[in-house]
């Protein structure tokens, strides 16, 4: 049986792993390779590295750390941040990343999704969606890496998810911004809506605080993975403990 994935997310800024609350006030939490190895060894199914400054600075991710990661871990990983051309994407993949994730550049130029999917295959192309709920409407935000540049787009989460799905995205990471970093649980309503809307894997992101939150999102929605950062970086949840717990509750997860 295909397993539900547990995905630690490492926000990278100036070569260090950082974490902020609701996308602000980033603090350094550790070294990239050290954390990547720790998560890989403790049973993470996949890792996501977001260069959170790259997109809003209009600069591309620095490649050295990507090949360092590829040498040091043997699980799949995805790189996000400032990938805006075929050459950028090719460079990231050639350095050993398995997937590329695009967010703001896809909003600037939606055809990028199709271009990437045609060249590298849909399975490589992840679209990150930053969704902000206001008065019951899920608004898509852009340039969330820099609080001064963050802006609302014309899209709702639903219409943008369908657009990128039809353009050839192979996976969607839904970042529920209201929940980010506050550890009150995933946005189950929103996760359920998007996972039923598109026929590609959806990864829930934003809000994980307890073991139960992971169980809730897997038992009540069709998401195929759950992404989290602070609960792992701060040792609030151990991945091994999380997987043992989920398995006992009947969720299909990878445990050796």
């Amino acid at each position: 049986m295909l397993k539900k994935r547990i995905i630690p997310c490492l926000d990278v800024q100036n070569g260090k792993v950082v974490k902020g609350v609701q996308f602000r006030n980033h603090q350094v939490v550790g070294d990239i390779i050290e954390l990547a190895k720790r998560y890989s060894d403790s049973g993470a199914d996949e890792l996501v590295f977001y260069d959170i400054t790259a997109s809003s600075d209009q600069r591309q991710v620095d490649k050295k750390w990507i090949s360092d990661i590829a040498r040091n871990i043997n699980i799949p990983f995805c790189v996000a941040g400032g990938i805006r051309t075929l050459a950028d994407a090719e460079n990231v993949l050639a350095n050993g990343a398995d997937k590329i994730s695009i967010n703001s550049p896809a909003l600037e130029n939606p055809n990028l999704v199709t271009e990437f999917a045609k060249r590298f295959g849909s399975q490589c192309v992840v679209v990150g969606i930053d969704s902000y709920e206001h008065n019951g409407v899920y608004h898509v935000k852009q340039y969330t890496g820099d609080v001064n540049k963050t802006m609302l787009t014309k899209h709702t989460m639903q219409d943008w998810a369908l657009i990128v799905y039809n353009l050839g995205a192979g996976e969607i990471v839904l970042n529920c911004m209201n929940q980010d970093g506050v550890r009150k649980g995933y946005d189950l309503v929103q996760c359920k809506i998007i996972a039923e809307l598109v026929n590609i894997p959806v990864i829930a992101s934003g809000g994980a605080g307890t073991l139960e939150h992971f169980y809730d999102v897997f038992s009540s929605t069709n998401v195929t993975g759950a992404l989290a950062a602070s609960v792992f970086h701060n040792n609030i949840i151990q991945i091994k403990e999380l997987k043992t717990y989920l398995k006992a509750k009947g969720i299909a997860v990878r445990c050796d």
């Binding site: 049986m1 397993k3 590609i200």
Partner: peptide, 26 residues
């Protein structure tokens, strides 16, 4: 959902040197 992407378990019932130290359903 296609592609089949993610972790899934191996099923085997043969003795083969390839499976040394590999467990059913890894």
């Amino acid at each position: 959902i296609i592609p089949h992407m993610g972790w899934n378990n191996l099923i085997f019932d043969v003795n083969h040197p390839l499976f040394a130290d590999i467990k059913l359903n890894n």
